[in-house]
């Protein structure tokens, strides 16, 4: 059937995009690709019937963090600095060993959707049998997150909201006029920096310079 094919293709898209993100030096393209990765991740979650996790991923990953990354890009450089080429043996070894351990650890995990898994032995039966009449939401995961563990979700929302406010306060997404440098006020220097770096981001399409993406 087409179902597994969709799963496999979505997951291979994610792998390809992740590799491209690592290889690419143009940070605007990287931000776009990370947004794409997030959207794909949300699609995979949706296909796996975790609708509200997917929704969070799409709103936070594809929506907010892309914008925050772009806002950060206007404060920093547009392209990543070239590193010295060559393979570092020690980090590669550490990463390979960690990955092998993780893959080895998954061999003990129960299969996806296994009804005999330990996590399905505790309260899952009650959720599955009673949540329809108790909560009235067709998706069991949504009824657990939004109602049975509602306070938990409220706490998470408060944490994310606070983090968002902190990031906005750091980046300063407010109206900022380019001021002439005649006055010296407290935040004048910051305003000038914004204008300069904005021009650095925006000059690419104006000059029509073809940029080379995906170079290693």
């Amino acid at each position: 059937m087409i179902g597994p094919v969709i799963d496999i293709l979505l997951l291979s898209f994610m792998i390809v995009i992740a590799l491209a993100v690592v290889r690419m030096r143009d940070l605007f393209g990287v931000a776009m690709l990370v947004s794409l990765f997030s959207l794909l991740c949300a699609g995979v979650f949706t296909v796996m019937d975790a609708a509200d996790v997917a929704f969070t991923e799409a709103a936070v990953g594809a929506g907010i963090s892309t914008i925050l990354m772009l806002a950060t890009l206007t404060r920093t450089a547009r392209r990543e600095r070239r590193r010295a080429s060559g393979v570092s043996i020690l980090p590669l070894t550490v990463v390979c060993i960690t990955g092998a351990l993780l893959v080895f650890g998954t061999s003990d995990l129960p299969r996806l959707g296994d009804p005999d898994a330990p996590i399905h032995k505790h309260v899952a039966d009650r959720y599955l049998q009673r949540s329809g009449e108790e909560i009235g939401i067709p998706n069991v995961v949504t009824s657990i997150l939004a109602s049975y563990r509602g306070y938990d979700t409220l706490g998470e929302t408060a944490v994310i909201f606070t983090a968002g406010i902190a990031v906005i306060a750091l980046l300063g997404l407010r109206r900022r006029r380019p001021r002439p440098a005649r006055r010296r006020e407290g935040n004048d220097a910051l305003g000038e920096t914004t204008v300069v770096s904005t021009a650095a981001v925006a000059d690419e399409p104006v000059q029509g310079r073809p940029e080379k993406g995906g170079d290693g």
Binding site: L9, I17, D26, L36, E204, G213
Partner: peptide
């Protein structure tokens, strides 16, 4: 989707990437 991902990775301009995404 394969074609769109290819365009998003290859670029070459910013607008290609935006449209691909």
């Amino acid at each position: 989707m394969v074609l769109a991902v290819t365009r998003a990775i290859l670029g070459p301009t910013v607008y290609d990437r935006i449209v691909a995404v």
